[in-house]
Design a protein around this nucleic acid. Structure first.
Length: 500
RNA sequence: GGCGACGUGGCCGAGUGGCUUAGGCAAUGGUCUGCAAAACCAUGUACACCGGUUCGACUCCGGUCGUCGCCUCCA
């Protein structure tokens, strides 16, 4: 079982062979902290979170670096708009980024380096580039001379002649070639700046990733990732800088994630259709978001929409439901003196192995999460069927069911889905206070009981009414609970409830 | 203009030269239920169009049409 990844450089799926056996160095371009992240950003980080988790699941020791770009034109512009210091803007949105990614349940990278803390390293590289004749200085600016790097364009697969340089941006006539890019920018008054051999200034956008990846992951590390739109010019320029400086291959595998569209339009400020991660998380569970992302292979674009969220929400419910049913079945009394249903047991055991096999095969194929998810759902179905067909269970049957449950948790966990059922306390917090009124009506008193507990007791009262065929009372109670968003589920084993 | 991606059943979305019932959502039917709801189960013969290769193509090749992305703001 070997992992294959699609390498943007070769445009092919390649067998993944890390530089050092068992260890992976992975660098993902982080955000420029000038605003809250939107779901496009979110998807990219989510994709690499999934990749990271799966690599760990495969047993690799992964060093995961994701930087923060905390000095940049956009940050300066924002600071000027608000009349505050750029560092204040950077700090505010760095914190916000941290909150958002935590709320998305993203694993914290091993290292989160900041650009402003690596100026020295960047200057060192720039000096090296100048020495080698790969960069030139003009009035305190330093430009990379792409004509001196014959392989320029190899990642994006373009020839210099094919590109219409300057078509969308005015060309600086001082540059040797229109496509030459800044590695160091001289500071204008009031801008954040650092001392350098070329006067006060700040780094160009691309140089930070060269400097920080080199520092923390070394020459020729394994995986470099980011959104598709970073292929050119950002990653192309990183290659020119780093390989020009070290004379060695920069990265083994280039991985790029697909974009998020809103409906079928591009998400863009000019279209006013930007959706922020933090806004979305107010309405939808983070697992729902993750499930939505898992439904599409990471390189493909996603046309985002409310309908998709709703679908994912339902699908996520299905996953939680099977765990509820397992929990109930395991909680029920075991029956020892009954013949085992050999056929059912064999079938579920087979399904457990099959699910894991298919899951790994799919993920090994360039992280095909959609297919991997299908494997999980197949196990869900088999588990449900088992529970339905088996009825009362022997110890042995329960053991098999525990295995199925463990596998569901293992596989979903490998891609960061959390199928933990909320505990009574947690649910209680979400219940409205009107539950006390209903409890007062139905039970007579509320004592000092927790909200969750009260719901249990109310439901018990309803079941007594049902047994006595007092359906008027039973329905009244049901209506009361429904109004609070509590969904009742009557099963042969008893009544359950959950908060919608 | 250059480079690239894609066009799968109602929607989303995997996949393969001839056994995948992929999977999810929706829909329909059923089981369960006092009635419901929920839950669970069952059901879909789809691969843009035109040629070609082949014993056989949705899957390979060529062409046509269409959609989309990138070409120094961009995850």
């Amino acid at each position: 079982m070997s992992l294959k990844v699609y390498n943007t450089m070769s445009r092919e799926k390649e067998e993944f062979i890390p530089r050092y056996a068992g260890k992976v160095g992975m660098y993902v371009c982080g955000p420029t902290v000038y605003n809250y992240i939107h779901i496009g950003n979110g998807r990219t980080y989510l994709s690499f979170d999934i990749i990271y988790r799966y690599l760990k699941y495969k047993g690799y020791a992964v060093t995961y670096v994701r930087n923060l770009t905390d000095v940049d034109d956009k940050i300066i512009n924002k600071a000027n708009e608000e009349g505050v210091a750029p560092s204040e803007v950077a700090e505010r949105y760095s914190e916000a980024f941290d909150e958002d990614t935590t709320n998305m349940r993203l694993v914290r990278p091993t290292i989160i380096p900041k650009a402003t803390e690596h100026i020295k390293e960047m200057i060192e590289i720039i000096e090296g580039l100048i020495e080698k004749g790969l960069a030139y200085v003009i009035d305190g600016d330093v430009y990379y001379e792409i004509a001196k790097f014959p392989e320029y364009g190899k990642l994006a697969h373009r020839d210099l002649e094919d590109m219409r340089a300057g078509e969308r941006v005015e060309i600086d006539p001082r540059k040797h070639h229109p496509m030459d890019f800044a590695v160091w920018k001289s500071a204008k008054p009031g801008e954040p700046s650092w001392d350098s051999p070329w006067g006060k200034g700040r780094p160009g956008w691309h140089i930070e990733c060269s400097a920080m990846s080199l520092k923390y992951l070394g020459v020729t590390f394994d995986i470099h990732g980011g959104g598709r739109d970073l292929i050119f010019p950002h990653h192309e320029n990183e290659i020119a800088q780093t390989e020009g400086y070290t004379g060695k291959k920069f990265v083994k595998y280039w991985l790029h994630g697909g974009m998020v569209n809103i409906g079928d339009e591009k998400m863009a400020k000019s279209l006013g259709n930007i959706i922020l991660v933090r806004d979305l998380l107010k309405e939808y569970d983070r697992n729902v978001l993750r499930l939505l992302a898992l439904g599409t292979q990471y390189r493909s674009p996603i046309n985002f929409g409310t309908d998709k969220l709703k679908e994912s929400e339902t699908a996520y419910e299905r996953l939680l439901n099977v765990r509820r049913r397992i929990e109930d079945a395991l909680g029920a009394m075991t029956v020892t003196r009954m013949p085992e249903k050999v056929e059912q047991i064999d079938r579920l055991e087979g399904a457990i192995d099959e699910a894991k096999k298919k899951f790994i095969e799919s993920m090994d194929d360039d992280f095909n999460t959609a297919a991997a998810l299908a494997a999980v759902f197949e196990l869900v179905k088999e588990t449900n069927t088992f529970i339905e067909a088996y009825g009362e269970m022997s110890m042995h049957a329960q053991d098999i069911l525990k295995k199925a449950d463990a596998m569901l948790l293992e596989l979903s966990g490998a891609v960061g889905l959390n199928l933990t059922l909320p505990g009574a306390e947690e649910v209680g917090k979400k219940l409205p206070d009107t539950i006390f009124d209903l409890a007062g009506d139905v039970l007579g008193s509320t004592d000092n009981k927790g909200k969750s507990e009260l719901v249990d007791e109310i439901l018990e009262r309803r079941n007594i009414a049902r047994k006595e065929k007092d359906f008027a009372t039973a329905d009244k109670i049901r209506n009361g609970l429904t109004q609070m968003g509590i969904e009742i589920e009557d099963t042969p084993l008893g009544s359950r409830w959950k908060l919608k």
